[in-house]
Structure formats: C-alpha cells, structure tokens
Amino acid sequence: MNRRPSPILEHGVVSAAGPMLVFSLYLLAAGHNQPGGGFAGGLVAGVTVVLAWAAGGPDTVRRIVPVRSSVLLGLGLVIATLTGFVSLVAGGAFLESGYLERTLPLIGTVKLVSPLGFDIGVYLVVVGMSLGLVRALGGEPPEEEVGS
C-alpha cells in the first residue's frame, strides 16, 4: 500500500468486526429454520475479512481471524464429510438428517440437528475462501507459507 489507511476507519472496522462475526454465527445457527445458513454466515464473515483488509491491511486481518486459510478450508471439508459419515454409521443414508432433543436447565428445550455440523463445515470453507483470496489478491507478499 502506498498510503497509510485512516486510523479512524481501522478502529471502526475492528470494533465492528466482533458484532459482525457474532451475526455471522447467528446466521449459521439459525439457518435451519430461518433465513441464513452456513453459506450466508460464511459470506458475512468473509465480508468482515475484506473490510478489515481494506481498513488496515494484512495485520488487521490477522488480528480478527488469526488462522491460516488452508486450515479453515481443510477443517471445513473434514467436518462436512464426517457429518455425512456420522449419518451413515447411525444407519441412515450419507448426509441424512438426524436430531437430538434435550431440555437443558435455564435455557429450555434445545433441538440439535446433524445438518448443523454440515453447515459448520460449509461456513468454515466459505470463510477460508474469502481469507485465502484476500491474502492472495490483496497483494502483500506473505512472510510465511501459502495462505498464511
């Protein structure tokens, strides 16, 4: 970058990043019954990453998402695939939905559906994609390995 980004912008983005990431997690968790889902949630997190890059460059990105993109991509694919196999082991078809219903103290009835695991995988892959593309196209030569 040939000019220093504005500190006000940078601070603004960093303070907004937390709520945005929380919102992305909310979309992820709510997606099964309301608008949202892993893809939409991942995109919100991805937009956060792009904003952070625009406001403060690679260092700011690293402060907000301190993981390598390849880790997110790999982890996401592993989680998504494993969820599929869980249904298979439980006697259903690959990726068939199952659910657990429990009443927890204070919170109330919670219904845990297996597609949530799959959606988490999708979420991680989408975030990993945004992170990887921003790192690569963002143009600062990386100090470490690919996608760091």
């Binding site: 893809f39 990726l95 939905s97 892959v125 996608g147």
Partner: peptide
C-alpha cells in the same frame, strides 16, 4: 427437522451437491 426449505435442500436433500461445491471452492482458493 428444518423450516427453512432452502437450507434443508442445501444440507440434506442435495447435501452431496453442496459437499461437491464446497470442495470446488476449497480447490479454487488453493
């Protein structure tokens, strides 16, 4: 067990497609 049909299609009915798509995403990023 999902009221959001779009999401149910993505993660269950056509879950295999989605798995393929996120794999493509990962490969494209790499």
């Amino acid at each position: 067990q999902g009221a959001n049909v779009v999401n149910v299609i993505l993660v269950d009915f056509r879950g295999f497609d989605t798995l393929g798509e996120i794999t493509v995403l990962a490969i494209a990023t790499l």
